[in-house]
């Protein structure tokens, strides 16, 4: 039987997800044993999108004209398209300022709006193409990437139930950072990361996005009690949730 073909593409991002995959050497070697990697610009010199791919993983947000062209081409080539990482899933850190016109951002950053290619606001993949699965996280969790690959290459839809980061945090017997008085987004954030931040003494920064039923109202209340208010509160909460946070807060009936 022919080996399944896979691709790993990146758009506007830091390439951190791909590094995570490259660093997961033992699994990567196993993956190479059973699948052909046809497209992986960061890890290989021979790349093509002209053959049909069984699975295409895409990192990064759609933030330029080129991104849009690439992801559309990738979508055409791939039977399954999987968004990996927070940028591809929800726009990522770069979606933070989506309510500011792009020109203004360019002016501030580069002192000019004259760019060699067209720049748009940062969008998650699903605003541009159909996405079959999303594996969020900054970066994507290597273990989850391998498990998702295993499911998909075996023709099974991946199963990653959405539970709060508190699940893994408690399982690692970490003292509750919220109760300690820290700012922690764990209670509204999707687990799967293994709660590395909280176990190292930080509060969760929320990089993996929402779990199934995030209680924004209470989260805002709890953070406010810990002296995080107004603009600082928004900035903390939206670091990874991007500009979509405002809508979410509105839906949850939070008045700020």
């Amino acid at each position: 039987m022919a080996k399944p073909k896979i691709g790993i593409m990146y758009l506007t991002s830091c390439s951190g997800c791909q590094c995570e995959i490259l660093n997961y050497e033992s699994a990567l070697l196993k993956l190479l044993d059973i699948a052909e990697i046809k497209y992986f610009p960061i890890g290989s010199s021979a790349n093509t999108l002209d053959e049909e791919l069984d699975v295409l993983f895409v990192e990064g947000s759609v933030s330029t004209e080129l991104d849009e062209k690439m992801v559309k081409k990738g979508r055409e080539a791939a039977k399954l398209l999987v968004a990996i990482g927070t940028c591809a899933s929800f726009g990522g850190v770069q979606a933070n300022n989506n309510d500011v016109p792009v020109e203004e951002l360019l002016e501030t950053t580069y002192g000019t709006i004259d760019m060699p290619f067209k720049i748009t606001k940062a969008r998650p993949l699903e605003e541009v193409v159909k996405v079959d699965y999303k594996l969020s996280g900054c970066p994507v969790e290597g273990k989850q990437f391998v498990q998702a690959s295993a499911f998909l290459l075996n023709g099974i839809q991946p199963f990653f139930p959405k539970m709060a980061v508190c699940y893994e945090c408690k399982l690692s017997e970490t003292e509750c950072r919220t109760l300690q008085g820290l700012w922690c987004l764990g209670p509204i954030t999707n687990a799967g990361c293994g709660a590395p931040c909280t176990s190292k003494g930080l509060g969760c920064q929320g990089c993996r996005g929402d779990h199934d039923d995030p209680n924004y109202m209470e989260m805002v209340e709890v953070l406010t009690e810990r002296a995080l208010k107004d603009k600082d509160l928004i900035n903390f909460m939206k670091a990874f949730r991007g500009n979509y946070l405002k809508e979410k807060l509105k839906d949850a009936g939070v008045e700020l």
């Binding site: 539970m163 709060a164 980061v165 508190c166 699940y167 408690k170 399982l171 509750c176 764990g186 209670p187 509204i188 779990h211 199934d212 039923d213 995030p214 209680n215 109202m217 209470e218 989260m219 209340e221």
Partner: peptide, 13 residues
């Protein structure tokens, strides 16, 4: 329930 995060800490502990 309004205050509950659905975080599952109560059941997991």
């Amino acid at each position: 329930a309004k205050r509950c995060f659905s975080c599952g800490t109560c059941t997991n502990t």
